[in-house]
Amino acid sequence: MEMRYGLIGAGMMGQEHIRNIDLLPNARVAAFFEPDDGMRAIASGLVPDAIVCNSVADLLNQEAINCLLIVSPNYLHVRQLEEIASQRALPVLVEKPLFTDPADLDRLVQLRNGYPAPIWVAMEYRYMPPVAALIESADRVTGGVKMLTIREHRFPFLPKVGAWNRHNVNTGGTLVEKCCHFFDLMRHVMGCNPVRIMASGAQDVNHKDEISAGPAPDIWDNAYVIVDFENGARALLELCMFAEGSRFQEEITAVGPEGKIECLVPGPGRFWPAHLGDPPVAQVIVSPRQTKAPVAVPIPVDPRLLEAGDHNGSTFYQHERFARALRGEGKIEVGFDDGWWAAAMGMAAQQSALTGQAVKFSDVMLTPGRG
């Protein structure tokens, strides 16, 4: 089966998807819709044989496509999924976050219950090679994860068309837009759902001097989030988006009664200062509790994949798994409920930070089981 993608949105992240799809066997972008002139021209250069469409409806009318990829601004995802459902319900890979507004609950319930084809939500951090190695070994190394810490120190949000990612109303807020990845990892590693979230966050440094035609940017640039899980384990997120000098962008640590495992993930190589030589290589460090003899294992990533995108090869591996699932060789690994929980956890964290109160999931109508 050849994967013939219809692409909705061909901006910065859409172009990363295009470059990675181009590396897959039996896969191509057959058609795309991108309303911005500049981004449309760049995408056309990447896939010159693809049909350029004037709307989502036009794209869905293209017989050449047999699956869909949504890479539009966050606030459009639910609306576009509904349009797809009503016109041509093909298998979909939809970028995170799945939704941005708690008011969309009823619409999401209808989509989940009525969509006849697979929906895969793009939680590509699961597929970064060092993170995947941690996920695979965490329970064995730790004897059962009791504490999970995710630390991201990185650069500010990049410029996007129309500066849509500078405003909470468009993104769902930083703890939804950026951190849904990390909440997904927490839930995936723990193997159960959260019960309570406490958070503190703010916009302290970034984007305050940016001038726009509309409201001033209000996206947060730092936060702490603590999550309690059903199994009694807990997780911590530390986010700082004015720390671009960091050697590693993500540091993830899982600890249990028998030991500790951590992974260190460098940021995009294109941001690494040339005068410092080669960028750092991702690694996983295993620290058994009894022997006190940590072992560090480098996790190199195929240079072609590093060149194709900013996510340590994860975009490629995600598409590879998506293709396997559609060919009947695997399962949908990141489904609708996974995307739902990741966004809902971000919304609960935003609410906690704004109110100063912990949020219990038993008290909110944000989760799939309460639809």
Rank of each mutant, 00 (worst) to 15 (best):
I70D: 08
C179D: 11
P280G: 09
W220H: 11
D101K: 09
G114N: 15
A202P: 00
M13H: 12
H311W: 10
Q80N: 05
S352R: 01
A30S: 12
W272E: 12
M128A: 13
L264S: 05
R112G: 07
D302W: 04
M345H: 00
F316I: 07
G335T: 11
T253I: 13
P97G: 06
T291W: 08
F248N: 01
G339Y: 10
I261G: 03
L175R: 06
L326W: 07
P294K: 13
V301Q: 00
N113R: 15
A31C: 10
P156R: 04
R151H: 09
I219H: 03
G162H: 06
P268A: 10
R40A: 15
A282V: 06
L98K: 11
F182P: 00
H17Q: 12
Q351W: 04
E230A: 13
E262G: 14
M123Y: 09
E124H: 15
A235G: 14
F361V: 11
G11L: 07
V286D: 04
D37T: 11
H275F: 09
F322Y: 15
A274N: 02
Y127S: 08
D49S: 15
R40E: 12
D139C: 01
E95A: 13
K96W: 11
P215R: 11
E177Q: 12
E210C: 00
N222K: 10
P303N: 06
P279Y: 03
G191V: 02
C67P: 00
I299K: 03
L69W: 01
G214F: 05
I252R: 03
P116Y: 05
L134I: 03
A349R: 07
F32C: 05
N222A: 03
A223D: 10
